[in-house]
Nucleic acid binder design. Structure first.
Lengths: 205, 205
DNA sequence: TTCCACACTGCGGATAACCACAATTGAAGA
DNA sequence: TCTTCAATTGTGGTTATCCGCAGTGTGGAA
């Protein structure tokens, strides 16, 4: 974990320069790094899948609206939490945004500290999610190292079948199953079928 | 699964008799059974943990408000999806309700069909959740049948330890471990440690 | 053509797991 | 007191797993 991952970070997307500046200053005073974007288009053009932090998104902007920007991010598989800011309350809009996965929806005027608190909570909850996702990705990486045959054998091992049965179902000798099984354990970094099951447990096929 | 579980059902909580009647009629036309309650207090007094269906809850009521009623339900461990109805839009209220787990938050006037659609979606999503939860409960029931010693042995089996090692750690003979292990498999309805791990995988200790 | 990854197989031995048969002890209840 | 249940242990035998040693065949990359 590099220090940059631990430092709170927020992307500010708002077409009002005064607000961008105010939020940047606000975040700085609370030790949250930030970067401000003058439009949804600029933000989307620069957006990278590996970005960290969260996104503070104004709803009403001149060209692309915050909601449209949010939809575009969803399509691109964005995983960063999004916090909406809006001047005029609109319940259906807020409900829709939250149901699509936005982290929060704040109505102006809002308490400055409340916004930062929300940002920090968003980052914390996302960090936990991210951690799980990364271990999942590691497992996927290990799985990718298995040959097709090894994966086949593994599936059958995972349902608790005997080598004898597996050999029968795949029409190969027991010895071959043993070899594959052993290679699977080795590549996955486990020492038994039970450990393998545990490793693959949380998100299984 | 009895037929009553498959029949869509909604509790209507609203102190306006005209609305109760209108919603009851609306639901009936869409094959959704319902029961209307004239106040949050009446509803809470009757509420049982094993109720099925969903709850359509008006925000503004004379005595206890819909939000207070919701909080009371949360404290009691309610699992039914709650759909709020409100006359006057209030973004923070809607956001708060959704973040506390409400299924939806509809502003009057709303499309009648839209409400029923939401109710049906709520029931569907809850049915899936409920199904998972029930299999979890079944597993918990099986686990409860294990003696303390059997549970201890099971934990060690689940991390892939050899009987010999388990025997050592518990200061008992290998034979005893074998007996416990075998009893665990029998009670849990599995035939191998791998199956046991899979059974306990989704929600593990 | 040579090298290599992948899949496949046999033999034999060591270790672990599974199981039937058999039995003892202690505590909680009927 | 008699019964039941949980926990414990032993013996001996079968089955499964794990591994080293050894070897064959194939298709693709260098």
């Amino acid at each position: 974990m590099s220090p940059s991952l631990a430092t709170p970070f927020a992307h500010i997307v708002d077409d009002d320069e005064a607000i961008r500046d105010a939020l940047s200053w606000l975040f700085r005073t609370r030790k949250v790094e930030s970067r401000a974007w003058p439009s949804a288009e600029d933000f989307l053009a620069a957006w990278q899948p590996d970005w960290r932090g969260c996104i503070v998104l104004d709803i009403r902007m001149r060209e692309m609206s915050g909601l449209e920007c949010f939809d575009a991010l969803l399509e691109r598989g964005n995983t960063l939490p999004v916090i909406f800011l809006t001047g005029h309350g609109d319940v259906p809009m807020a409900v829709g945004a939250l149901k699509k996965g936005a982290f929060d929806f704040l109505e102006k005027p809002f308490d400055d500290n409340a916004l930062v608190d929300v940002v920090i909570r968003a980052l914390e909850s996302n960090a936990r999610r991210q951690a799980n996702q990364e271990t999942q990705a590691n497992v996927a990486g290990l799985l990718a190292q298995l040959t097709p045959r090894e994966q086949e054998v593994m599936q059958l091992v995972l349902v608790g079948k005997f080598n004898k049965v597996i050999a029968d179902e795949l029409n190969i000798s027991m010895r071959t199953v043993e070899v594959h099984r052993s290679r699977v354990f080795e590549k996955m970094g486990v020492r038994s079928a039970v450990e393998l099951a545990q490793l693959l447990a949380p998100g299984r096929d």
